[in-house]
Amino acid sequence: MSNSVAPVLEAKNLVKNYGRVVAIDGADLQLFPGEILAVVGDNGAGKSTMIKCLSGAETPDGGVMELDGKPITFRRQKDSRDAGIETVYQTLAVSPALDIAANLYLGREIRKKGPLGSIFRMLDNSGMKKSAKEHITSLGIGTIQNMSQAVETLSGGQRQAVSVARAAAFGQKVIIMDEPTAALGVRESGQVLKLIQSLREKGLAVILISHNMPQVFEVADRIHIQRLGKRVAVVTPKSHTMNEVVAVMTGALTLEEKDQTLGPIR
């Protein structure tokens, strides 16, 4: 353990209100390079809102966010993507009628080279299909063969895989996943967890929001516990048990700072 590693993504004292509802109330978050940080918390703890702020889907009312030590403000989704943060939403955010390749490159299509691309703005469909195939195969999703298949013809797990593949293909620094296994069966969940671990191998930092404690304990390096719009503790799967984490989540247990793992572990 060394404290010299700087966090890749840091949020300090974030505040977000929806009208009179306080969704997050001075929340902190630190994400270190090459780690999987699980974010857990009861319903209404402000997990999703915090993630939306980090991914640019919402603008926080107060607090600061820093990427590689530099302050960042995201006015829209695209800003966070340009900064190297990719998000896999619970709703997957795939366009059902479009095919896999089109979905992978949605919002960042590649144009053909030469005048066809620059003057006529033609898309390089065959090129995008080819590299989409490479991305899908590199993630070990063998069941998806045809990149011109419409996403609506895929199973839930395959759709999830497309969504994760999109994040993995373009994520430069951070990948945020909101309940990536919520809709999946056992085998498919296992595949997605493997995908998440392979992202860590590639050196990316991953934020995993999940309600599934066994899964969190299986893959996470550190566990960020959110309660009533604030971070109440950060622990590791080794330092604490599932029951303790649940107790902290519900407020039955409070942890001293010396018992937490606020620094990087890898």
């Binding site: 889907a57 989704q77 993507r81 939403y89 955010a93 795939v94 366009s95 059902p96 009628a97 479009l98």
Partner: peptide, 20 residues
């Protein structure tokens, strides 16, 4: 790309927004 975005917006506007 414009044409593809037209389809994407009609298909699922929220997904299109989240896709950037």
């Amino acid at each position: 790309g414009w044409g593809r975005h037209v389809y994407a917006v009609g298909d699922d506007i929220e997904a299109a927004r989240l896709a950037g």
